[in-house]
């Protein structure tokens, strides 16, 4: 890594309690190879201890540090400063959209968690449920573990909320389950979990989606919610057609 240093203006959204929101600029010297969260954490450490921001794992497994960076939803722990600004440039850091702001850069994501609970989204699932196909790796799929059980892995969805923030209809439909939740329902499949049909086959379920595919574009975790919502629609339609012909 080089010793290159950039000067970057972090324009940060600030809001306390009932106060009016405003923007505050912090000028930082950063390495372009650093991640955006490193800059935000340094603002807190060296410039303003009142800054409120969320973060935990710093490597995209927890989903806590989602923010809008120059208007686009990003997981800030894996967003390199080099990729989103230039030397002397600006980074506009704002909280996610479509969730209530608690303070500064932190939002209340209970909307997402309520939905994930509604569809009983599994946090850990068998490897075969979402295999790691197409990654050019050699996972030992055919070999079970010592005790004959299947490998388990943590679900791809890290519940970061970026997809709900990027969704253009989530802001005008507060009851909409949202991309992550519908993706979690699709992952289980209506065939295996038929009780999900009632939750997703409704106006605030799969039919609220207007196919902007912004969720897939911002997802940092290979979930592809846009595709999964469409596939869930296909499953719902197939189920309806089967019912018309007297099937189960």
């Amino acid at each position: 890594m080089s010793e290159e240093k950039w000067t970057v203006n972090f324009v940060v959204y600030r809001k306390k309690g009932e106060g009016a929101p405003h923007y505050q600029t912090f000028t930082l010297e950063v390495s372009p190879e650093e991640y955006v969260i490193d800059g935000v954490e340094r603002i807190w450490a060296f410039h303003d201890r009142s800054l409120v921001f969320a973060h935990a794992c710093h490597h995209s497994t927890c989903g806590a540090c989602g923010m809008r960076v120059n208007g686009v939803e990003k997981l800030t722990c894996i967003t390199r400063i080099r990729d989103v600004t230039s030397n002397g440039g600006t980074l506009r850091i704002e909280p996610l959209r479509n969730f209530p702001v608690i303070s500064d850069l932190v939002v209340d994501m209970s909307r997402l968690y309520v939905g994930m609970d509604k569809v009983h989204a599994p946090a850990v699932h068998p490897l075969s449920m979402a295999p790691l196909e197409g990654e050019g790796i050699k996972p030992p799929r055919e070999v079970p573990m010592d005790d004959g059980k299947e490998y388990l892995r943590l679900a791809d969805c890290i519940e970061c909320g970026l997809c709900i923030s990027a969704c253009p209809v989530a802001g005008t439909a507060e009851e909409y389950l949202g991309p992550a939740v519908l993706a979690a329902a699709q992952l289980q499949g209506l065939g295996r979990a038929p009780d999900l049909t009632a939750v997703v086959d409704c106006v605030d379920g799969v039919w609220r989606c207007h196919s902007a595919y912004e969720c897939t574009a911002v997802c940092p975790s290979s979930v592809d919610p846009g595709w999964r919502i469409m596939d869930l629609r296909r499953q719902v339609l197939a189920q309806r057609i089967r019912r018309w012909f007297g099937g189960a």
Partner: peptide, 10 residues
């Protein structure tokens, strides 16, 4: 901070 923002989360 939020839950587990220091050593634990990392």
């Amino acid at each position: 901070g939020p839950i587990a923002n220091g050593t634990s989360g990392r």
